[in-house]
Amino acid sequence: MSLLVTEGLTKDFGGLRAVDGVNLVVGEGEIHGIIGPNGAGKTTVFNLITGYLKPTRGKIHFRGRRIDGLEPHRVVSLGIARTFQIVRPFTDLSVLQNVLVAWGHRNYYGLGPFKPFGPAKRKALEILEFVGLAERAYVGAAALPIGLQRRLEIARAIALEPKLVLLDEPAAGLTEEEITRLKELVLRIVASGMTVALVEHRMTFVMDICQLITVLDRGKVIAEGTPSQVASDPEVIEAYLGAGEGEGDA
């Protein structure tokens, strides 16, 4: 069953076509990697899916429903959560409160905003436990090192109880040991019933854990397949070796 489908997804920024006719299919229970050199349009694809940008052309279907053009908070309520390439923790809040904000997503409607958040603290702690941040629950989010801020972003995404989690370069700035723990965390997220799509510009991380990989270059999909298929694709190798002169008009 495909969870997320984009058809001809296109986004122009003035004269620049950042995303160019992207057809992406993410199946349920998958770990789907999206890779490509810097500036390939990976983050823009996530911004289009999550409602931060409106597509110039193309459609986005999530669980059979059109979602392009919906506001970000609506997309969240339909079951898509995301993290940001450049982390955006609420630095005035504690780690626990950051997760509470996300866990509150069902209370931001109707009379929900006027209900106390206190009873949800236990659940938020469980989520922090899940990502391995429980002992930092009461620390200000600003005080976390970058690696843990990335994990906090994942904790918030999980707290939204999504069907699909979009991770934008979750391994950026992490040490080798942290990357190992991240892989393990992503596997546990999928094991608990969520689907993950993640963006990386480094190949190795993606090769290890993704079942399917989509390769973007200059806004276009230039290859798609299993890690081994993608790794042996000449066009991918070319894009990655930076032999950017060869026209990638696939």
Binding site: V76, S77, F90
Partner: peptide, 14 residues
């Protein structure tokens, strides 16, 4: 508190 600090991140929290 959340959107007061960061509207972009707050939207991602629903």
């Amino acid at each position: 508190e959340a959107f007061g600090e960061d509207e972009v991140a707050a939207k991602a929290m629903g």
